[in-house]
Nucleic acid binder design. Structure first.
Lengths: 146, 146
DNA sequence: ATATGTGCAAAGGGTTTGCAGATAT
DNA sequence: ATATCTGCAAACCCTTTGCACATAT
């Protein structure tokens, strides 16, 4: 589990732990993802280019795939939009604004967890990961006049 | 809200209600989606072709878009897979098997709803739709020896 | 009658792949 | 030293678009 805003050294350790070499491209990528919280591939490419203009799109894709496989990055599929990606952390809820697209994290509390376990028992379904997305309007988009 | 297994006449009414003409292509599509529960675009194309071989892929895409816009069909984005689509019904939970890909519906109960409302109040976030996907292993994939 | 919808084929855009040269360990 | 990684460009999807013909109302 990685927390937001970790520094390079810690990303190095994370990569090492899953057997991936700590290349500049990978470190920049993790920095970008960690800093943003959640981000699309396109935005990753743009952001990474700011500090390392020569990184290729292919490299970004290859690395995202590897990081997904190794579990250090997680996909957030979103209705009507491209998926976003985030560094692996505790399961939590996403509040997704259908107007501006902003994604906010919300802690998944204990009562919720119990609820999830209930579903397990009931259906003989072994849950390994929960993905809770609530779509609606963020505070800004509720109040701003269009 | 549409229930699974409605017949042609009812699909006609649904289409009329949102101002879409009741073409054979659309009726077949709704039938296929309704019958399957949840289905990918590719599988829709295959299934529709069985009863109506001349329907074009472009038509399927155009119709899915329109049905999403008009709200009679809903997208289910899934981690690491293509999105699936279902006819609009009450919000519910999806149990997604990460092994065989099977998607099962689970009723969203009242306690859950209260929880969602709590998030609203707390964050001034106006929820319009909830999407809860639980990933794991279905009963079959837990027991089958590989 | 006419506004919509369909099918075709071409265009578009995002993602993947293969390979030679570069890099981390 | 060498297994792994990067960048490039081509290949590959899946999805969208434009247009002439067909269809639902």
């Amino acid at each position: 589990m990685i927390e937001r805003g970790k520094m390079m050294k810690e990303y190095r350790a994370v990569l090492k732990a899953v057997g991936l070499k700590a290349t500049i491209q990978r470190l920049k990528l993790m920095e970008v993802i960690g800093h943003s919280g959640h981000i699309t591939v396109d935005d990753m490419v743009v952001a990474v280019h700011e500090s390392h203009p020569s990184i290729s799109v292919a490299t970004v894709y290859k690395n995202i795939s590897q990081m997904l496989e190794s579990g250090i990055v997680v996909e957030i599929p979103i209705v009507g939009q491209k998926s976003q990606y985030e560094l692996k952390k505790m399961d939590h809820i996403h509040l997704i604004c259908t107007d501006c697209g902003f994604v906010e994290d919300e802690q998944l509390d204990i009562a919720f967890d119990q609820k999830l376990n209930y579903a397990v028992t009931k259906d003989s379904f072994l849950i390994t990961r929960s993905q809770i997305n609530l779509y609606g309007l963020c505070y800004n988009c509720q109040t701003v006049v269009k």
